[in-house]
Measured scan of single mutants.
Amino acid sequence: MASQGTKRSYEQMETDGERQNATEIRASVGKMIDGIGRFYIQMCTELKLSDYEGRLIQNSLTIERMVLSAFDERRNKYLEEHPSAGKDPKKTGGPIYKRVDRKWMRELVLYDKEEIRRIWRQANNGDDATAGLTHMMIWHSNLNDTTYQRTRALVRTGMDPRMCSLMQGSTLPRRSGAAGAAVKGVGTMVMELIRMIKRGINDRNFWRGENGRKTRSAYERMCNILKGKFQTAAQRAMMDQVRESRNPGNAEIEDLIFLARSALILRGSVAHKSCLPACVYGPAVASGYDFEKEGYSLVGIDPFKLLQNSQVYSLIRPNENPAHKSQLVWMACNSAAFEDLRVLSFIRGTKVSPRGKLSTRGVQIASNENMDAMESSTLELRSRYWAIRTRSGGNTNQQRASAGQISVQPAFSVQRNLPFDKPTIMAAFTGNTEGRTSDMRAEIIRMMEGAKPEEMSFQGRGVFELSDERAANPIVPSFDMSNEGSYFFGDNAEEYDN
């Protein structure tokens, strides 16, 4: 993207840094990872977990959730003011799984939030270390993106479920800051804005008074975040219109849905970061690795190297396929839920299948599930090659597409044709070009129609051997075009429920 120079890199967003050079960025990201790792080690000690239990991804998720809940100030305040039966607002906890007599047992633990905050700050040299908290939120978000298709949420806001490739980060909490905003897809931002506008339509006082002023500035800020994701002048001009509207209503909703559809071809720039579970960072720190000293990046080879040398386990339900569970977590670790499966298959070195073909449910185990038949197995999170994460949407291309997802959002900077089903997408653009945004709409449609099938995206960008740390010898991959490109292809993934 041309304006790259004016933006802070995501590592800076990730670490609240002012302008830093590459070495400083690597050190501050490393410091953040160190903090998460030290916190995780301490929690495993508190909970008396064995090494194996500490490497269980379900335990990692519970521990991450506990610290996120302990620092969720708004919710904590709300819980104190609106006490609900049987919930102690000062405590947080969740299921911890232990191996007892050759069987997995679930144990519900409860801790004072104050105590968890103390352990977290102690692991982070006394700081609140917001960057580390956001990092864990993005890992949870990436896992949700890989596990669930947001059909219901899309339909509720009037969008087409086939636009799911635009929904990265749709389950990120509001408090995820600049680093969170960077990884949100165009569809996620559109959905947040539509929800806001709908509230304004239904509630006369939404934009009024002292609160209304705050609401208005939040609305304009979200519009600017979305505008910054678009790469064409016409899309940005249309966002200006939406932002400046005196009284946002149905016309703005129409414009936003139009823009979301246009992003299936004229893709937005959305950041991709490899955020790993805390149970990967903990053992690495415990083994003596100093992330701050060595430096770390979320968008280069580092996460690949770390996963190459990590042992992570997962509980497996009786009829689940461990290899499929591994694929789910591998995609989440690489922030690749909406990437082209052919690119992923090449990088991973084994075939990556669409969601609907995987015999696996989510990673988390519900409290009512029976533990008797639970097994555990090693997650295979290694890769054959590594590639640089991208934040450009890439230019655009036609490809055989599917009944489910009709476009992709690249996660890796790797040369390819970008699949999208042009006739299906263009069919949504018939007729409606009147109104105050008509010239911009016409211009956007013209650009979409001009998108050429034979153009290559990320020209000359390749993948790298894991021994090639400096990215000196790019390998331009070859793809098996007979395979499906979309992950949520004609899909039956479970729906995400809060």
Rank of each mutant, 00 (worst) to 15 (best):
Gly268Glu: 10
Val242Pro: 03
Met456Cys: 12
Phe71Glu: 05
Thr157Val: 14
Tyr313Trp: 13
Ser482Gly: 00
Leu256Gln: 14
Ala411Tyr: 00
Ala85Ser: 13
Arg26Trp: 04
Lys77Arg: 15
Gly158Asn: 14
Val414Met: 15
Phe412Ile: 14
Met163Leu: 12
Thr6Ser: 00
Thr151Val: 07
Val414Ser: 02
Leu226Val: 12
Ala428Arg: 07
Tyr281Ser: 02
Gly93Trp: 12
Gln311Ile: 03
Ile194Gln: 12
Thr6Lys: 00
Glu469Trp: 02
Glu443Ile: 04
Ile96Asp: 09
Leu381Lys: 02
Gln308Ala: 08
Val100His: 15
Ala442Gly: 14
Thr92Gln: 06
Arg65Lys: 14
Met447Asn: 03
Thr215Gly: 12
Ile347Asn: 08
Phe230Ala: 10
Pro277Asp: 08
Asn211Asp: 12
Gly362Glu: 10
Asp372Met: 10
Gln149Met: 06
Lys90Leu: 09
Pro303Phe: 03
Glu465Thr: 00
Arg75Trp: 09
Val67Glu: 11
Ser486Ala: 02
Gly54Pro: 12
Asn202Ile: 09
Ile316Ala: 03
Val190Cys: 14
Lys227Trp: 09
Ser482Trp: 00
Phe479Ile: 15
Asn224Glu: 09
Glu192Asp: 10
Ser383Cys: 12
Leu358Phe: 09
His140Tyr: 11
Ile63Pro: 14
Glu465Gln: 01
His135Ser: 07
Asp127Ile: 10
Ile119Glu: 06
Asn205Lys: 12
Leu133Tyr: 02
Leu264Ile: 10
Tyr281Asp: 05
Gly300Leu: 03
Ala179His: 05
Gly132Leu: 06
Thr437Cys: 11
Asn473Met: 14
Ile265His: 02
Asn370Glu: 07
Tyr97Cys: 12
Met448Lys: 12
Ala337Cys: 14
Met189Leu: 15
Glu495Leu: 07
Lys7Pro: 00
Gln241Arg: 06
Glu80Lys: 11
Ile388Trp: 04
Gly393Gln: 05
Arg236Val: 08
Ser9Phe: 11
Ser84Lys: 00
Ile475Met: 14
Thr157Lys: 04
Glu14Met: 06
Leu418Pro: 04
Thr134Asp: 10
Asp480Ser: 14
Lys31Gly: 14
Gly435Trp: 14
Lys227Ile: 11
Arg461Gly: 07
Glu369Leu: 08
Glu81Trp: 01
Thr188Cys: 06
Ile445Phe: 07
Lys293His: 15
Ile201Ala: 12
Lys273Met: 07
Leu108Asn: 04
Ala123Glu: 07
Ala27Val: 15
Asn124Thr: 03
Trp120Cys: 09
Ser262Gln: 14
Ala451Pro: 00
Pro89Leu: 12
Val408Lys: 07
Ser367Ala: 14
Val363Met: 08
Gly295His: 05
Tyr487Ile: 10
Met66Gly: 13
Tyr496Val: 13
Leu47Asp: 12
Glu369Pro: 12
Val100Met: 12
Ile41Asn: 13
Ala332Arg: 05
Pro477Leu: 00
Phe429Leu: 06
Tyr281Val: 11
Gly394Glu: 11
Leu306Gln: 15
Glu292Arg: 11
Leu143Asp: 01
Thr23Pro: 01
Phe479His: 13
Pro474Leu: 02
Phe429His: 02
Ser478Tyr: 10
Arg195Leu: 05
Thr215Trp: 02
Thr6Trp: 06
Gly300Phe: 09
Phe206Trp: 10
Ala442Gln: 01
Leu226Met: 10
Arg152Ser: 07
Arg470Phe: 00
Arg470Asn: 01
Gly228Asn: 14
Asn21Gln: 03
Ala181His: 12
Asn21Met: 15
Glu64Trp: 08
Met481Arg: 15
Lys214Asp: 02
Leu226Pro: 09
Lys7Tyr: 02
Leu47Val: 15
Glu192Val: 04
Glu192Pro: 05
Thr430Asn: 15
Lys227Gln: 13
Glu24Tyr: 10
Gly17Lys: 11
Phe464Arg: 00
Ala182Asp: 03
Asn142Cys: 07
Gln327Arg: 02
Asn76Thr: 05
Tyr281Lys: 06
Lys452Asp: 00
Ile253His: 07
Leu418Val: 15
Arg441Thr: 04
Gly460Arg: 15
Thr188Arg: 02
Glu494Asn: 14
Ala233Gln: 07
Asp127Pro: 03
Gln311Ala: 09
Gln327His: 06
Glu107Gly: 03
Asp34Lys: 00
Asn321Leu: 06
Leu108Glu: 05
Leu418Asp: 00
Ile36Pro: 01
Thr146Pro: 01
Glu443His: 07
Ile36Glu: 04
Ala323Phe: 14
Pro354Val: 11
Gln58Asn: 15
Gly86Asn: 15
Pro303Met: 13
Glu495Trp: 06
Glu81Asp: 13
Met196Ala: 12
Ile33Trp: 02
Gln405Met: 13
Ser367Lys: 09
Ala366Pro: 06
Gly209Ala: 05
Gln168Ile: 09
Glu294Leu: 01
Ala153Leu: 07
Thr350His: 11
Met137Gly: 02
Lys7Phe: 01
Pro248Tyr: 01
Gly404Pro: 04
Leu166Gln: 15
Arg150Trp: 11
Arg361Met: 04
Gly450Arg: 03
Glu465Trp: 07
Leu79Cys: 12
Ser367Phe: 11
Leu381Thr: 15
Arg267Asp: 02
Arg65Asn: 13
His324Thr: 11
Asp340Ser: 15
Asp290Gln: 07
Lys198Ile: 04
Arg391Phe: 06
Glu375His: 04
Met426Ala: 07
Met32Ser: 15
Asn247Asp: 03
Thr430Lys: 08
Glu220Gln: 14
Val190Gln: 07
Gly393Ile: 03
Arg175Thr: 04
Thr433His: 08
Ala263Thr: 15
Arg342Gly: 15
Glu252Pro: 02
Arg342Gln: 12
Arg389Trp: 11
Phe412Ala: 05
Ala337Asn: 10
Phe39Asn: 14
Ile25Thr: 00
Ser359Met: 00
Gln399Lys: 15
Met191His: 10
Gly180Phe: 13
Asn395Tyr: 07
Lys325Phe: 08
Ile301Tyr: 13
Gly349Thr: 09
Ser245Leu: 04
Gly177Ser: 07
Cys275Asp: 01
Met196Lys: 05
Arg355Gly: 01
Tyr111Ile: 10
Tyr10Val: 14
Ile25Arg: 14
Arg8Val: 00
Gly187Asp: 10
Phe412Val: 09
Leu193Phe: 05
Ile138Val: 06
Glu469Met: 08
Thr45Val: 11
Thr188Ala: 14
Glu18Gln: 06
Ile265Asn: 03
Leu358Asn: 09
Met167Leu: 15
Ala284Ile: 00
Gly404Asp: 10
Ile36Gln: 13
Glu495Asn: 15
Gly158Tyr: 07
Ile57Thr: 08
Glu449Trp: 00
Ala451Ser: 00
His272Asp: 03
Gln399Asn: 00
Val270Ile: 13
Cys279Val: 13
Ala233Phe: 03
Phe489Asn: 05
Ser84Trp: 12
Tyr219Gly: 05
Ala233Pro: 15
Ala472Val: 10
Asn309Gln: 11
Arg416Ala: 07
Gln241Gly: 07
Met481Val: 02
Asp112Cys: 11
Val270Gln: 15
Leu56Ala: 10
Leu61Gln: 10
Ser165Gly: 12
Asn319Ser: 12
Ser310Gln: 12
Gln149Ile: 10
Val270Arg: 09
Gly126Thr: 12
Ala411Thr: 13
Leu226Gln: 12
Pro477Phe: 00
Ile57His: 01
Ala123Thr: 11
Ala286Phe: 04
Gly5Ile: 00
Cys164Asp: 01
Ala323Gly: 10
Ile116Gln: 03
Ser141Lys: 06
Leu344His: 06
Ser377Phe: 12
Glu81Thr: 09
Thr430Asp: 00
Gly169Trp: 08
Glu380Ile: 04
Arg221Phe: 10
Val476Gly: 12
Arg102Tyr: 14
Tyr496Gln: 00
Gln58Asp: 09
Val190Asn: 08
Arg38Phe: 09
Ala237Pro: 02
Ala251Gly: 05
Arg317Phe: 07
Ile444Leu: 14
Glu495Tyr: 02
Val67Ser: 11
Ser287Phe: 06
Gln122Met: 11
His272Ser: 08
Thr146Phe: 01
Arg152Glu: 09
Ala336Val: 01
Ser176Phe: 07
Trp207Val: 12
Met222Lys: 07
Glu107Tyr: 05
Val352Ala: 09
Arg118Thr: 11
Ser262Pro: 01
Met163Lys: 03
Lys31Asn: 11
Asp51Gly: 14
Pro248Gly: 04
Gly431Asn: 08
Leu344Ala: 04
Lys325Pro: 05
Thr430Ala: 15
Glu53Pro: 02
Val312Asp: 02
Ile475His: 02
Asp34His: 10
Gln405Cys: 13
Ala129Phe: 04
Tyr78Ala: 09
Arg26Val: 05
Asn211Gln: 04
Leu358Trp: 09
Ile388Lys: 13
Met331His: 05
Lys452Val: 12
Cys44Lys: 13
Gly490Ile: 01
Gln308His: 15
Ile25Ser: 03
Gly5Thr: 13
Gly209Glu: 07
Lys91His: 05
